[in-house]
């Protein structure tokens, strides 16, 4: 059965979509062309899809500890590609798609001398 997912603070408002309990929140968002959470590996490794679940319940799978600490996990700061909704969810995006070279390009060049 589909649950209603609300991503807060995307642009001026929020994004809403339906997501079945058979689909991760990230896949559910992508499947119908919605945006808001950055999409990377979709497999719990890269961390770009990190969200904070403000309200609601979910099932989860193992995620990279480099991206999600135990504290994070306990505080519902998790990876959207590793959670399946078991109720309606309200969440906020934490993850970023950092364009490493252009954002920190100068630093990277300096390091290289």
């Amino acid at each position: 059965m589909p649950y209603r997912i609300t991503i807060e603070e995307v642009g001026a408002g929020s994004v809403n979509f339906n997501c079945s309990d058979q689909q991760t929140v990230l896949r559910g968002m992508e499947a119908l062309g919605n945006r808001g959470i950055p999409v990377g590996c979709r497999q719990g490794g890269c961390g770009v899809c990190k969200v904070e679940v403000l309200e609601g319940t979910y099932r989860k799978r193992v995620m990279s500890r480099e991206q999600v600490s135990e504290d994070d996990e306990n505080a519902h700061r998790v990876l959207a590609c590793c959670i399946w909704p078991t109720s309606d969810l309200r969440l906020r995006v934490i993850g970023k798609m950092v364009d490493a070279v252009r954002k920190t390009g100068t630093a990277a060049i300096t390091v290289a001398g």
Partner: peptide, 8 residues
């Protein structure tokens, strides 16, 4: 966007 940003 993933080419430069998504690594493990």
């Amino acid at each position: 966007p993933a080419f430069l940003a998504v690594v493990t």
